[in-house]
Simulated scan of single mutants.
Amino acid sequence: MRQFTAVVNPAAGRSSGTAALLPLARLLREAGAGLETRYSRSLDHARELAREAGERGDAVLAVGGDGMAGCVGGALSGTGAVFGLVPAGRGNDFARALGLPTDPDALARVLLDGEARPVDTIEVDSAAHGRESVLGSVYAGVDAVANRHANESRVLRGAASYYAGGLRAVAAWRPASYRITVDGVLHERRGYTVVAANSGYYGFGRQIAPGARLDDGTLDVVVIHHAPKRLFFAMMNELKTGAHLRRPQVEVLRGKEIRIEAERPLPYGADGEVDGQLPVTVRVQPGALRVLC
């Protein structure tokens, strides 16, 4: 029987994180599993708690949204530890890519009986932050600005915060000139964003890269070229189904190592958190994380 350590997002903390964990904890303990719950003080503290639990041989549960999943999963990447996810955030896009259920009974069965499947992670390398690992995607441009607005929202929640943040970001956006180097080949483009995707989803269920797979050892690089803003707003709706890929303004490249640069300071984000400014280099780490799914 598995021993679990649940690391709870400091933002989710005593509200949504606890609400998601309590019924699941009861089911795990009734089945005979051990469970220790740790509330992190920060994302750095969450990484520390995750590594300590993994070194003890516990299966480590990230309780929160995509930022928490990326934080805990990234800390365990390459360690051999077992990672589990309890979706309790706004987007939950990595859980969506894994096909995880939200029903406590179904999720408990996955965590108790599911196999630890190897999935890829992303190494992110930047001058400001050094090297760290994340799970879903790294995005540089208008979507990073939109995500910052969504995270700062105190009124709107869920999909509404992402949509409002997107509208605000696009309205103020100026086209950016990018230099995108994919496995040593340079592509110069002008547009809205560059997304290096391990998972197909980001931004609350938007299918930015429908062809991305978590275990294929490759990243899908989605480039949205310059277009009139009215067309970009239409594309925001098409992201729900992946229909944006049919537009000539959308290009998909694929590779294992991607460097993204721009002619002006631009933010990049990863797994729902805005981490820094370009340039950034990302590399796929094949099969680096063992995930219960």
Rank of each mutant, 00 (worst) to 15 (best):
G13Y: 02
R154P: 00
M235R: 13
M236R: 06
R131E: 07
M68A: 03
A81K: 03
R254Q: 15
T18A: 13
V63D: 04
V222Y: 10
Y163N: 06
P279G: 08
Q207L: 14
A20L: 09
P228W: 09
L292A: 06
P228I: 04
G13F: 01
G165D: 11
S15F: 05
G84F: 11
G217A: 02
A62W: 11
R2A: 06
A176D: 05
V63E: 08
R148Y: 04
L35F: 05
V72R: 11
H244L: 09
P104D: 02
G158M: 08
D105R: 15
R190F: 02
G141L: 08
H225Y: 03
L27M: 09
V86K: 00
L27Y: 04
V110G: 00
I258R: 00
P265E: 14
A160M: 06
L156A: 14
A243Q: 13
G141Q: 01
R96V: 07
P104F: 00
R14A: 13
K256F: 03
E261M: 01
G242M: 11
I208F: 11
P228K: 01
N92A: 01
E48P: 00
E132K: 11
L245G: 01
H45E: 15
G255P: 11
L167G: 14
L98P: 02
V222W: 09
V72N: 11
G287E: 13
G64I: 01
A88F: 10
G287W: 03
S161F: 02
N147D: 05
N151Q: 15
G114N: 11
L85I: 15
G64T: 10
R174L: 10
D275I: 14
K240M: 04
R109V: 09
G217V: 00
P23C: 08
A46Q: 05
I224N: 05
V7Y: 09
V86N: 00
G17L: 07
R157C: 01
V282N: 07
A171Y: 12
Q207K: 15
I180C: 12
L266S: 10
R174E: 15
Y268S: 04
A169H: 00
A196F: 07
A150C: 07
